[in-house]
Design a protein around this nucleic acid. Structure first.
Length: 814
DNA sequence: TGGCTACCGGTTTTT
DNA sequence: CCGGTAGCCA
């Protein structure tokens, strides 16, 4: 029954009120960007100005009300009189109590943009995840149909969907990470007899990366005239790209480069994505490099509904060829763009904000901008000058303990580092004191040896051209195929133009010694068997077959060392992941699984809950876009931060300063900044003066940390020591009290952890201290139901958070 | 071919 | 401090 006129008017009023109520959560500038509708939009958003909020609401508004809200638009036909009560109910209780987003969509969403026509791009997986979380929370429904992802994931998805049309590549291509790339470059250097200090593989890798990110393809038939880096580099690039193509492999830069090439070469493919993505949003636009710029511009050309968000003060990826002109020239590239400035900061206390503003004002290359806040003044910055890096770590620990005692939770804290290597001391310290922490970034999940091994098997089964994978597995576990034999196979495959797999099959051509030939043919029959299994088995059982049939499993099981046990655990963890994959992808394929996993880091797999129950440790680069009540920035010393590579280069120094600005503006309530007089770097002690960034912040905004803390810390430490079995001898030297002290006051983690109260799943609960057969003591930080049954996320000293399955994991309560 | 020792050198930041 | 590897011997 359609609505009568009176009901219609009621409906219009209700709809308008709902929209109004949603928008009332935003400030005027945010509302302008949220409702800007069609056409190009440039949003210059300062730190903490609610730009993610603006983007999330912009998407939400597009989905529900469409780009061009018409208060008198006809209600959808399906709306009936009693639905008016539902809408009124939603107004009274907007937090999805009475009405889901889906209901809202059917009731008023007729003019909305369909989810699949939206593309939102971020820089890191973490930022993409954050945006997804917020969208899902706001809407109350999963958003699988929307592309919210990094540049690299978006490109990978396009390449996989268009795999029949690729230029220079076949469909099941591999993805090479930095390690794989290095292998390739090394092999090329070996071939050119250029293996010495003058020619570091990494330097060539970054040169090649620079070429690719400015869309430059390798020269054909290039001949160097000398041995200088500049002369050789183009040749290396040419051979490198050939090698990758022969292996049917792409590196990370290729994901973008090959996508752009594809879009340019195949107008019908470009047209498809151009028309699909009606609305495109790009976060952190100041950090796009040339090729990312081209990618976005290609896609946005048709509808021109491109909304970019960024802040020139937060440009920190210059080293990756981020080009700040992309954002500065946006208005030129998209004439008629609406320009919106978000300058009110909602995140930080006014002192934190002022300190950050004062710091970044030392940069010359910037647009002047006035970021302001109505937030409270808050505390001054806590500055601590530690005697050494361990003392600095203990400072962090003792401050965390203090907030915990005051009712805070671990997840409120973030420790921000300049380099990943700085995490070691923090991890050791947190391990000793049983602080659950979450190391974000660091190793990519599959960078552990045993994971790389099993992945290399999978890659080779998926892509018989993959030379790097073959090299890795051909003699692992040992099966008597030595280096010279491997060399022969690789060379012969080049000579004869066959895939490495076919080359191995070509006995006559290879002409190996009889012993080597026997070993190779045994390996081949193994591969053949696994290849057959590939067609019938899912990823998990294929992985299991590989581990059993190669003897890898057996070899590890006979290894009694701690390392061996770790590896077994890691492999089990890996099989959890494959299990999850198999369960959620009924039609999944090995190649798809490999693609998915290669862009994922460790932390993308840790549950939300786990993250919130642990101190977050990460580099400042990873922290961009995130916020925390309490932030520690450590290592503020000349040579560490600013990093020594940038000390004598004004441009790079300014980038370091922006990085510091980014780090400081992550803090909501409290900001701690510390330096150490002495720090161990590569096993040697280094003494660096405090960072200029500390002195650039005026004194009236800083408090030097009271020296009495050291003493109170000693007392505190005394009460905590007992009951902790982890080795902490090396901490003792610098520390105060001896181990003899009364037992710690019970289970302080359960006591202070608010989550511990209501989590009562079978076995363990959040906050329980547990012992793992091979990893020792840890703390349960979350419990969840996974594809494989109940699983625990447990924080271990030195290991960070691991996913463990309740039914298999050798866990005991402490 | 494989295992061992003794050196050397590297060391930003991300996908 | 760590990992990679050159060089040696079984």
């Amino acid at each position: 029954m359609a609505l009568n006129q009176k009901e219609k008017e009621q409906y219009w009023e209700l709809r308008d009120e709902i929209r109004h109520m949603i928008l009332s959560r935003l400030n005027d500038e945010q509302i302008i960007s949220v409702t800007a509708g069609a056409g190009p939009v440039l949003c210059l958003a300062g730190a903490g100005s609610g730009k993610t909020t603006a983007m999330v609401y912009r998407i939400f508004h597009l989905l529900v009300f469409g780009p061009d809200y018409d208060p008198k638009a006809q209600p959808p036909d399906s709306v009936e009189a009693e639905d008016l009560d539902k809408l009124a109910g939603w107004l009274a209780l907007p937090d999805q109590e009475g009405l889901s987003f889906r209901d809202l969509l059917t009731l008023i969403g007729q003019q909305g943009i369909p989810m699949q026509q939206i593309l939102a791009i971020t820089f890191t997986n973490k930022a993409a995840q954050e945006m997804r979380d917020r969208l899902e929370k706001l809407m109350g429904i999963p958003i699988q149909d929307m592309w919210v992802m990094t540049f690299h994931s978006a490109c990978l998805r396009i390449l996989k969907r268009e795999s029949s049309q690729l230029l220079d590549y076949e469909k099941d291509f591999s993805i090479y990470d930095a390690g794989d790339q290095e292998q390739v470059v090394k092999e090329i250097l070996r071939g050119l007899k250029l293996e010495d200090k003058q020619h570091s593989p990494r330097a060539y890798m970054s040169w090649i990366s620079r070429q690719k990110s400015s869309l430059k393809l390798p020269a054909q038939n290039y001949t160097p005239t000398g041995n200088d880096f500049d002369q050789v580099a183009p040749l290396i690039y040419q051979r490198y790209q050939q090698a990758l193509q022969r292996s049917n492999a792409m590196d990370f830069d290729d994901l973008l480069l090959q996508t752009v090439r594809l879009l340019k070469a195949r107008p019908e493919v470009l047209a498809k994505y151009q028309s699909r993505f009606q609305y495109i949003m790009v976060d952190e636009y100041q950090d796009t490099n040339h090729i990312q710029y081209v990618f976005v511009n290609l896609l946005a050309q048709l509808h021109r509904n491109l909304c970019v968000v960024g802040d020139d003060d937060q440009s920190i990826y210059g080293f990756r060829q981020a080009d700040i002109r992309n954002i500065l020239d946006f208005e030129r590239d998209f004439p008629g763009a609406k320009v919106i400035r978000l300058e009110q900061n909602y995140r930080s206390t006014s002192r934190i904000l002022e300190a950050a503003n004062q710091l970044v004002a030392h940069n010359k290359e910037r647009k002047d901008k006035t970021l302001w806040t109505r937030n409270q003044e808050g505390d001054k910055l806590y500055c601590y000058k530690a005697t050494d890096d361990q003392d600095e770590a203990r400072f962090v620990y003792s401050r965390i303990q203090q907030t915990l005692a005051a009712g805070g939770s671990y997840g409120d804290h973030a420790v921000l580092l300049r380099t990943n290597a700085q995490s070691r001391v923090i991890e050791e310290c947190f391990g000793v004191y049983q602080i659950p922490y979450c190391l974000i970034g660091g190793l990519r999940f599959y960078e552990r040896k045993e994971i790389k091994d099993i992945l290399a098997y999978l890659k080779f089964l998926s892509n018989p051209d993959d030379r790097v994978a073959l090299r890795r597995i051909i003699n692992v576990p040992k099966r008597g195929i030595g280096d010279s034999t491997v060399q022969r196979i690789l060379e012969y495959s080049l000579q004869s133009g066959q895939s490495v797999y076919d080359a191995m099959n070509d006995r006559e051509g290879l002409a190996l010694s009889s012993r080597a030939e026997k070993a190779v043919s045994e390996f081949l029959s193994l591969i053949r068997e696994l290849n057959e299994r590939k067609t019938t088995e899912n990823v998990t059982s294929l992985t299991d077959s590989i581990l059993r049939r190669t003897g890898y499993w057996q070899e590890l099981q006979s290894d009694e060392s701690r390392e061996g046990m770790d590896r077994i655990e890691n492999l089990k963890e890996f099989m959890n992941k494959t299990g999850d994959y198999d369960q959620s992808h009924a039609e999944g394929s090995l190649a798809e699984f490999l693609g998915e996993i290669s862009l994922i880091t460790d932390m993308d797999m840790v549950g939300d809950e786990a993250r919130h129950n642990a101190v977050q440790v990460m580099t400042m680069h990873m922290a961009k876009g995130l916020e925390f009540p309490q932030v520690f920035i450590i290592g503020l010393e000349e040579g560490i931060f600013p990093h020594f590579r940038s000390l004598y280069n004004e441009t790079e120094l300014e980038e370091e300063r922006r990085l510091c600005y980014v780090a400081m503006t992550r803090a909501k309530d409290k900001l701690y900044m510390s330096c150490a007089a002495r720090r161990s770097v590569h096993g040697r002690y280094q003494e660096n003066p405090p960072s200029r960034f500390l002195t650039e912040i005026p004194d009236y905004l800083k408090d030097n940390f009271p020296p009495k803390t050291e003493r109170s810390f000693a007392a505190e430490k005394k009460t905590r020591m007992a009951g902790i079995e982890t080795s902490w001898d090396h901490w003792n030297a610098a520390g105060a009290a001896a181990a003899a002290g009364e037992p710690s006051s019970g289970n302080q983690i359960t006591r202070t952890d608010p989550m511990g109260e209501d989590k009562k799943e079978a076995g363990f609960r959040v906050g329980d201290k547990v012992v793992h057969a091979s990893w020792g003591q840890g703390v349960v930080v979350s419990v969840k139901q996974s594809g494989q049954g109940l699983s625990y996320q447990v924080a271990f000293p030195d290991k960070g958070i691991r996913d463990l399955l309740a039914q298999y994991a050798p866990l005991k309560k402490l």
